[in-house]
Amino acid sequence: MIEEKVKIPQATSKRLPLYYRFLQNLTNAGKKRVSSSELSELMKIDAATIRRDFSHFGALGRKGYGYDVQYLVNFFRQTLDQDEVTDVALVGVGSLGNAFLKYNFHKNHNTRIVLAFDPKAPVEGHIISGIPVFPPSMLKEKMLEFNIELVLLTVPAQVAQEVTDKVVKTGIKGILNFTPVRLAAPENVRVHTIDLSVELQTLIYFIKNDVKDSHM
């Protein structure tokens, strides 16, 4: 986990998992050292931005040498708590929720779905893709039993806030929201929203404007 005393910008924090992933790929390829310009070319992030991001953590590299790849991998693994797996609950087993259950994250990340909830599940629960699924009536009991602090929310938009109100009462710390609703939650619960329709519309906008710019 990133310590609170390390004051780094939110934009930098969001890039840290990307750095870790690309550095792991370099390690697997046998790369021993890398420059910010090489990372820039690989990641399509400005080299100055990379150097600025890394500078928040002190001297990670040496002038004229670049960065030691294995050192950076170890550093970001510790910074991101990659060796500690976080258990996650999924609320809403529709098409997207089912896809998450089949994929599960622990294969490639330090998170794993261990519990899910869906109105169609029986009271005694059933298993989907190896994950126990229970009805919403069992939410509080099971969330506390599994000691869940992070939730993936993939419910219909019309019930998103209602479900959020219920899950925050279990003492969770974060919600990754895949609904288009802007959720209201207590200050001690961090909510990150991924609105797929907005992301798609944004991509279409940029593509169309790229075409316009190419004809100017």
Rank of each mutant, 00 (worst) to 15 (best):
L96R: 01
N98A: 07
N98P: 03
A99K: 07
F100W: 11
F100D: 02
L101D: 10
K102A: 15
K102N: 12
Y103L: 15
Y103A: 13
Y103S: 12
N104M: 03
H106L: 03
H106P: 00
K107A: 13
H109N: 13
N110E: 07
R112A: 11
I113L: 05
I113D: 01
I113N: 01
L115A: 01
A116E: 12
F117R: 01
D118L: 10
D118I: 06
P119M: 08
P119R: 00
A121K: 01
P122V: 13
V123P: 00
G125A: 04
H126D: 12
I127A: 05
I127L: 15
I127F: 12
G130V: 02
I131T: 15
P132R: 11
P132S: 06
P132M: 09
V133E: 01
V133Q: 04
P136Q: 03
P136N: 10
S137W: 02
S137V: 05
M138C: 08
L139H: 03
K140R: 14
E141W: 02
E141D: 14
K142W: 04
K142H: 07
N147L: 02
E149F: 13
L150A: 06
L152D: 05
L152N: 07
L153Q: 04
L153T: 00
L153V: 00
T154W: 13
T154E: 13
T154K: 09
V155T: 14
V155K: 11
A157N: 12
Q158M: 03
Q161N: 10
Q161V: 08
V163H: 07
V163R: 02
V163W: 06
V163Q: 02
D165H: 09
D165S: 13
D165A: 07
K166P: 02
V168L: 09
V168N: 06
K169D: 06
G171T: 01
I175W: 10
L176T: 00
N177K: 03
N177L: 08
F178L: 15
T179D: 09
T179G: 07
V181Q: 09
R182G: 10
L183A: 10
A185V: 06
A185K: 03
P186R: 09
P186A: 09
V191E: 05
V191P: 03
